[in-house]
Design a protein around this nucleic acid. Sequence first.
DNA 1: TAATGTGAATCGTTTCACAGCG
DNA 2: CGCTGTGAAACGATTCACATTA
Lengths: 216, 216
Amino acid sequence: MQGKNKKEIPLPSISRLLTVSRLLDRYEQERVVSVSSTDIGRRLGVKADSIRKDVSYLGEIGNYGGGYDVIKLKEHIRKKLDLDRKRKLCVVGLGRLGTAILHYTDFNDRGFMVVAGFDSNINKLETIKSAIELHPAHEIADVVRRKGIEIGVIAVPEKAAQETADRLTEGGIRGIINFSPCSLRINKKVMFRNMDLLGESSLLSTLMAINDSENT
Amino acid sequence: MQGKNKKEIPLPSISRLLTVSRLLDRYEQERVVSVSSTDIGRRLGVKADSIRKDVSYLGEIGNYGGGYDVIKLKEHIRKKLDLDRKRKLCVVGLGRLGTAILHYTDFNDRGFMVVAGFDSNINKLETIKSAIELHPAHEIADVVRRKGIEIGVIAVPEKAAQETADRLTEGGIRGIINFSPCSLRINKKVMFRNMDLLGESSLLSTLMAINDSENT
DNA sequence: TAATGTGAATCGTTTCACAGCG
DNA sequence: CGCTGTGAAACGATTCACATTA
């Protein structure tokens, strides 16, 4: 009967607000005090109306006359979107891509702690130098549960992806980022996002083809 | 007055059709002859209606009574979405992520040829073993033009991303995949897709938070 | 005056419901 | 009868237009 206060923010708005938040970080560093929706929109390649609507979902801000106060707006977004929460994250599949993600330092500055890596090839675990704990893949569920890991990044080959998702879920994972180029069947309680390079490349290629045929 | 025959397919439909196409590859390997929209939908986590609508954008297929012929449908999608086109691709920024992408072999099976890598650090170019030609970053525009590279993958640090996009565009690139966590201003003629791990992680985290507060 | 905040109109996608066909 | 193909309805997001306020 209660608790859906945030559900009402449309997903595209949430996504834009997150990028707005990052933009505001930069403005803050540059000691910019105030920005207008037009400024933000231009910088992000989005209509100003959209930005205003997005902000309005957060609840009122004020400063009717002259743009948004950079710091206030930033705080507002942070608070409403739970941006200062810290989450533990693990990477499954330590090929080139997985290893790159494992060492992606920007995670740390943004509230994510990479606390474990997994691979089914035990030899591989020994060759990777890393301050992060590495485990064989069969321990996924155990380690996820024991360490309270909330997010799992899947960077395994296509064939192993579904199995990996199942193990993560078994360990009580709460979110998954899937780099493998296949659709996973994932428990409804677990949020997930796909980051499929092959898929995006194909989509891009098709968009290019369409774009061509339009300008003919 | 002509040429917008494809524009009418909504982008989400295109995206789904591409995953359908991959699913059909698998069915074909498994010697499955016929699939229904319900099969596909269940496998992909999508409503069957949606699949039927998507397919209908391609034009008629037939087989009214009993599902789709796997091979025919596959061919149909391939043809309409220009899927057997070959595209040359380059990777800019040869850190861990860029190098992983550079060596991503699945590209080759799906119509993409990785033909060049760039990095601003010349020393790095020498340490990377690769069959692919590597060049210093200042040659981007030249090489892109000379080799007729159509797609550029940006895997450089945030600060260098806009400059990279500009150089690629200068060389006549036609599509960009941007892995850097920032919004690029890109010429309208150039199609692009963002693959922002930090952004997706933040979005996922926020979705998780919302999901929590709903089930309270 | 310059910008926000927001109902109302519009646009695009999904879902529904059922007619059409093998 | 089962499953496709598709207009029409429902839904969700964006854009518009303007009242509102420093």
